[in-house]
Amino acid sequence: MARSISIAGVALELEEVGSGQPLLFLHPGEGLQPQREWFSLLARRFHLIAPHHPGWGNSALPDWLMTVDDLAYLYLDLAASEGLEDAILVGACFGGWIAAEMAVRDTRRFGQLVVVDPLGIKVRGFTERDIADMHAMSRDEYMRLAWADPAKGERDLMQLPDTDLAGIARGREAFTRFGWKPYMHNPRLKHWLHRIDLPTLVLWGEQDGIVSTDYGQAWQKEIPAARMEIIPRAGHFPHWEQPKEFVDRLVRFVETN
């Protein structure tokens, strides 16, 4: 259930459910969205700890907190403060970027790493986009790239209460603060991925139009003990679009590593 905790002076809201091996889940730029099926499926199998990033949900975003580096240190502090041991670190999309920034720094509290369609590295040339410019397209175009079946992702904003709309507006602003320039990546991160000493699963939605499976292969290549699996009929958010298959693959990976 939701609770708040102060880490490095930042008031964080986090969701915590289930029991078993601890799993720290870092959400995408679109937010945590625990009301979707993935959340309860994952909680049936793990002790799921899922913070709302600073600026999303009811988590505070102090002025000084400006980069994904800051988020990485914040969550390493959170892992220590929660006393995590042999935890699974899972990050989806923007959360995958944060998870990688954590894992290149310190993996003491974690046993495995799963990155799901992560943003965060630059692979190709100056004029080749590795990451689609989500902020230079219409919402319809974005939905077509981000979802294999855009109808599954639609939310009718005009029906939501003001508090939810304010949460969406805050999250969009925070995502922009962390990812605007360089666009959704850290130019140096790729050169440090070799430091990740955890068994790693790179999970990818087959129809992801935001970051392609080729980009996923670059991640796999840079992380020493990584393998890649592809989830069909899923776009940028396989945990939302194919929650059962997402959880099945994650469980199989954890059990065999």
Binding site: H135, L165, A169, R172, E173, T176
Partner: peptide
């Protein structure tokens, strides 16, 4: 995002 306030965006 962020150009207008949260209230204005709501």
């Amino acid at each position: 995002p962020g150009y207008n306030s949260v209230g204005a965006n709501v």
